[in-house]
């Protein structure tokens, strides 16, 4: 729906394009990280593209989402601009958070993106809060929380589910079960075969779908959205998927073999969706190649944009602490000018 209505051929091609964009964006982020251009920690979404795109294609543009530490895919699926995302990854001033948030904290309230989140399980309560606001104002929107299988062990996820269920809020909860909570397999972290069974505890609908299939995710979330809009409360959707990369870039991954990854790659969400569209005569091999090379250009341009963007100024450290500027900004800037910026300092 919105700009990506998967029920139309045009919308399906847009969904395919966004999945390719996510893949290309994160492949590039992986290279930039390896080259030292992106410092810190980067968690990639490669392999899980059908979940973000399937879910967001069931949302309207003004619906809200919350994201995770592995959030690039959610951002692109929700329609955020790869240029400003890449600038944020590189810590530049033109990034979505002025280069102060980085890979794990991209947010854009205007796009209904309430934030990637460095804390596992911190997103669902925020979605519940947005859903409460929507409910009280009587708006025609929903709030959707993406979170991982690991987060299902966090207390605040359950508090969010309980509140949303008890108050019958227009919320949708999407578990991305990528088989690992960091480096520990899902079955060693949970007693349930299907994490969607968690829904039974809150007497809300729970469903497990193939998270490698963008249309399966779309259908489940579309149904959940309708339910939410009809005043019938939240739904818990578990999308079963797979994380091709490590928990973070540089993760030695002693917990799995390359063959496990290869097995899942055979059901690659982009490849299988393309084949389906090709078989339906909606796209040719040549057109797909062209789409991929357009996406490459988009991401290359994003990297160029990010590289050319300015670094934050030292006094930006004090900016946006409160609505009123912190008095330290003036002191800090004065001192920096006095010593040519060498020493930092806040006296």
């Amino acid at each position: 729906m919105g700009t990506m209505n998967i029920e139309t051929a045009e919308g399906r091609l847009e969904a395919l394009r966004r999945m390719c964009t996510i893949r290309e964006f994160d492949d590039t982020a992986s290279e930039l990280f390896a080259d030292g251009e992106i410092p810190g920690f980067v968690h990639l979404y490669i392999g899980e593209e059908a979940v973000a795109v399937g879910a967001c294609s069931a949302l309207e543009d003004d619906d809200y989402i919350t994201s995770t530490h592995r959030g690039h895919g959610h951002c692109i699926a929700k329609g955020l601009d790869p240029e400003r995302m890449m600038a944020e990854l590189l810590g530049k001033r033109d990034g979505y958070c002025k280069g102060k948030g980085g890979s794990m904290h991209i947010a854009d309230v205007d796009a209904g993106m309430l934030g990637a989140n460095g804390i596992v399980g911190a997103g669902p309560p925020l979605a519940t809060g947005a859903a409460l606001g929507i409910d009280q104002r009587g708006e025609d929107r929903v709030a959707l929380a993406f979170f991982g299988d690991g987060a299902v062990a966090q207390g605040q996820v359950h508090e969010a589910l309980n509140l949303a269920a008890t108050w019958s809020l227009p919320a949708v909860f999407v578990i991305e079960n990528n088989q690992f909570g960091e480096g520990t397999p899902v079955e060693e972290q949970h007693h349930l075969d299907n994490l969607s069974e968690t829904a039974e505890a809150y007497d809300i609908p729970g469903i497990t779908v193939d998270g490698m299939d963008v249309t399966a995710v779309n259908e489940a979330v579309a149904e959940a959205r309708t339910r939410a809009r009809n005043g019938d409360g939240p739904t818990l959707v578990e999308a079963v998927t797979y994380r091709y990369r490590g928990h973070f870039e540089g993760d030695p991954q002693p917990y799995r073999d390359e063959e496990d990854v290869e097995e899942w790659r055979e059901r690659d969400p982009i490849e299988t969706f393309f084949q389906r569209l090709r078989d339906r005569g909606e796209i040719t091999e040549e057109e797909f190649e062209a789409m991929r090379s357009e996406v490459e250009t988009t991401v290359e341009e994003a990297v160029e944009y990010a590289r050319d963007a300015p670094e934050p100024e030292p006094e930006d450290a004090y900016e946006d602490m409160f609505a009123d500027p912190a008095p330290e900004i003036a002191q800090f800037a004065e001192r920096l000018r006095a010593d040519g910026g060498e020493r930092g300092g806040d006296r």
Binding site: G91, K92, A317, D346
Partner: peptide
Amino acid sequence: FDTPYPLYALEDYYLPS
């Protein structure tokens, strides 16, 4: 500083050098 710990571009200013 009296701020959340900043991202890398500002980290060298934040940490006492």
